[in-house]
Design a protein around this nucleic acid. Structure first.
Lengths: 223, 223
DNA sequence: CGCACGCAGTCAGGTTATTTGCAGACAAGC
DNA sequence: GCTTGTCTGCAAATAACCTGACTGCGTGCG
């Protein structure tokens, strides 16, 4: 896994939705769910996901309209369409309503995961620069200009989560959920230890001061 | 259309090849053609295309091996695989042998054009070379200057995958997928053993130190 | 046939990096 | 000044990896 992302999923089928959500979480990503197009349009923009997966065949509206509505709401994340329709015009119109990829049901789970990863990676390349600091998937670390440090898997997922939305407070609980496998029992203090070590590694890059700030009683922010 | 590119196409079927070539040219791109994997490996690197399209089912070799060979030869362009196989493992191993997209025959021409355009648009910048080490397909081994060592099939595919993206961490899972036939059950430790044997063989070439570095909890990098 | 050989896969034990938990110092907010 | 939550340094526990040796399988050769 190259990074830690937030994935928005809009799917009406109960079974499929939970399978996909579990699969994404198993890879360490956070998931935002919606059952209907309406829910998606209401919920996704504020979640600012890294990738959006939308079922075209929603009960209340066409997934492509949802995509357009999301774009209109200012969401710029890549969109992958999921659909039972495999006629050509559907694919093309999927791409043309702002979609970035297209997958026909039935599909195999790993293929979806791979494609989602490809989309997220592309986006990360576009935007993951925060004051010069960027996640470096190649080295599995972070880099600032020339300098770079390697990170352990947990550290990597932690910065990934913080960097993904600069200026936004991330709750301790959310960080734990992002960095540890689901269901892991994590001692309160363990997170503190990691933050400490992260800060240590980050100063070794000696960029401008700042970085991980703590918000007492809530969590941490990247600034 | 956003630009004019050079597209390399490796396809053995006469009819399909000319249809595709004509379609690409109709959009204003230049096209470099190859009938066989051998031709592709010889011709594509010097053509430095923006996108490479490879048929997996070539008569003389597996398209994925062609991809590995091209990558080893220093070609960094995105690769789109074309294939009649739509079984899952084929798709996955396509992605993991360094492919960037995958299209199953029969496909509709506009879809291919759209995907090729997407790849060309996000074409990555050039990357580093392999410090003189290169894959030697004839001997089925690796060579550094004068010296050369032979490799077993699995070893060969492993270095191939590592060399294909120097400096980029390759996950254990991806290495397994690249080196073993799909669905093979590979004991955790088996990969370790192979890496060990590879390192052993590589020091016998006594080039500069370095080579395969391990990234704990993730995979390995070629440096 | 019987043997040697190279390749592939396994195992057990040693060696590290990573992860976790503790316990005391510190700082913020009431 | 007291409580609560966070920081820090450290050491134990764990998991990942390395290593060397061993087994089984097939191929080719005498």
């Amino acid at each position: 896994m190259e990074g830690v992302w937030t994935i928005a999923l809009c799917e009406d089928d109960e079974a499929l939705r939970s399978v996909l959500a579990r699969a994404f979480r198993a890879e360490g990503h956070s998931v935002v769910l919606a059952r209907t197009g309406q829910e998606a349009v209401r919920g996704f923009p504020s979640a600012t996901p890294d990738v959006t997966v939308i079922d075209v065949g929603l009960p209340d509206s066409d997934g492509r309209d949802v995509c357009l509505a999301l774009r209109a709401a200012g969401l710029t994340t890549p969109v992958l369409f999921l659909t039972a329709l495999d006629a050509l015009h559907d694919k093309i119109s999927g791409f043309q309503s702002g979609g970035d990829d297209y997958l026909t049901k039935p599909f195999e789970l790993p293929e979806l995961l791979v494609r989602v990863a490809a989309l997220a990676r592309r986006r990360a390349g576009d935007t993951a620069t925060n004051r010069g600091l960027r996640l470096d998937p190649d080295r599995h670390g972070v880099a600032l200009g020339e300098r770079a440090v390697a990170l352990t898997p947990i550290e990597y997922r932690l910065v990934g989560r913080l960097l993904s939305r600069p200026g936004e407070v991330v709750r301790r609980q959310a960080l734990v959920a992002a960095a540890w496998p689901p269901g892991a029992s994590v001692h309160e203090n363990t997170l503190d230890s990691y933050i400490r070590r992260l800060r240590e590694k980050l100063v070794s890059l000696d960029g401008p001061p700042g970085g991980i700030e703590t918000v007492r009683g809530v969590g941490y922010v990247w600034r």
